[in-house]
Amino acid sequence: MSESEGLYVVVLAGGISHERDVSLRSGRRVADALTAAGHRVVLRDPDAALLPFLASERPDVVFPALHGSSGEDGSLLDLLAALGVPTVGSSGAAARRAWSKPVASSLLAEAGVAVPESIVLSHEAFRELGAASVLQVVREKLDGEVVVKPASGGSAQGVTVVTQIEDLPRAMVEAFTYADVAVVERRIVGTELAITVVDTGDGPTALPAVEIEPTAGTYGFQARYNAGETTFYAPSRLGAAELAAASDAAIVAHQTLGLRDLSRVDFIVDATGTPWFLEANVIPGLTETSLVPLAIEAAGSDAATVYGSLVRSTHARATAD
């Protein structure tokens, strides 16, 4: 197949996770970009007919744009691999490492990346040991402001910044709404950065960091997906040394977790210039207000070029295997 010939690409979007609407928006943007790049694109929801469809159609490449458990917990990625369908992005095993924030944080800490001090609590332990006793230990260990979040999931759903200790119980309830395990971590104050890592076959490259300045002070779900609620600086206004350290840490995260093709790694850079790892996303948001498209633009490229390159490198990798 010549470079000028388009591939048959199935873009997966939707699913049944809390992030379905965001995924649909990402999927439409990816489909539009790949169509502009000259590929034949079909947009599909991961329903009961999907696997028979893929087995019958045998597309050249599948491009998942599924956020939340639908695409990022590794289950579907394992099934796509079992079907032998070339798929843009990470393997199921790598996705599981990133999907679990405690696992990802532990691996990154071992790799030398700064990770906020935290306590991981299952809902079961929280009930059995008594909420009051558990929270007392948490308060003593993590004095000061903390962030409470589900141990898995994205789009900042279930995440609470706790500045008043009396708000901690409610924050725990909110986190447990989205996952059976919650993370309470020491809050790092600084500049929030998102760094996109792209690998089209020549090794992972960090795109320009996107600096996030939410109007309300917290980069929550509404601030992520409603235009005008956050100011983005692409590239970031931080100094060269700080940006280099964050970019290097993003590459370390991508490689340590075994990620592939495309990821987004989020950090807080403190006053000393240290980038603190928050999370890694194997299928980051690709909507009109998402961070990856901003990074692509800041790099002087466009979605059609980058997504098209990912599709072609995925097809080439599968052909070579």
Rank of each mutant, 00 (worst) to 15 (best):
G220V: 00
G130N: 09
F221P: 00
A246H: 08
R58S: 04
A304N: 11
D261E: 07
D248C: 05
L121R: 09
S152Y: 07
G220K: 00
D266R: 14
A245R: 15
V85M: 13
E57W: 03
P116A: 10
D47Q: 11
A82H: 11
L83D: 07
A249M: 09
L50D: 06
K141C: 12
A244L: 13
S4M: 06
S133Y: 05
Q255E: 15
I212S: 05
G38C: 08
E242F: 06
A131I: 08
L286C: 02
S236K: 06
G300H: 00
G71F: 13
W99L: 01
R187Y: 04
G38S: 06
A316S: 12
T177Y: 08
H123C: 07
E185R: 07
V189S: 15
S70Y: 06
T314P: 10
V61E: 01
A179V: 06
R139T: 12
S17F: 09
E297Q: 15
I212D: 01
S236H: 11
L310E: 11
L286W: 03
S17H: 10
T205Y: 01
P169Y: 10
V42C: 08
F53G: 00
P284W: 02
P52N: 08
K141S: 15
T205H: 14
G71I: 11
S26Y: 03
D78C: 14
T218R: 05
A244R: 15
R312Y: 06
A280C: 15
L54M: 11
A194P: 00
S100W: 00
L12W: 14
L129Q: 14
D270H: 02
T314I: 02
S2G: 15
A31T: 12
L168C: 09
A132H: 07
T160C: 03
R97V: 02
E211M: 05
F232H: 11
R97W: 02
G203N: 01
V62P: 13
V282T: 15
A175D: 12
S133V: 11
P275V: 07
A131S: 15
M1P: 00
A37T: 12
P208G: 02
L142V: 02
D321H: 07
D143H: 12
Q136E: 15
E185S: 07
S290L: 05
N281S: 09
G217Y: 06
V85Y: 09
S69T: 12
G92H: 13
L193Y: 01
A298M: 08
A223N: 01
Y219T: 00
V197M: 05
A13S: 14
R29E: 15
E242H: 12
A151I: 07
T35R: 15
A244P: 06
A125N: 12
E297T: 11
T314S: 14
V197H: 08
V184M: 13
A295G: 11
R127Q: 15
V134A: 12
R44Y: 07
A253L: 05
S26P: 03
S309H: 13
L107A: 03
S56I: 00
T200M: 09
T160L: 02
V269W: 09
G300W: 01
T215N: 02
R170F: 04
A298L: 10
S90D: 06
S118F: 03
S263E: 10
G71R: 12
G71E: 10
E110N: 04
T256Q: 13
G154C: 04
E3P: 05
G190R: 14
G239I: 08
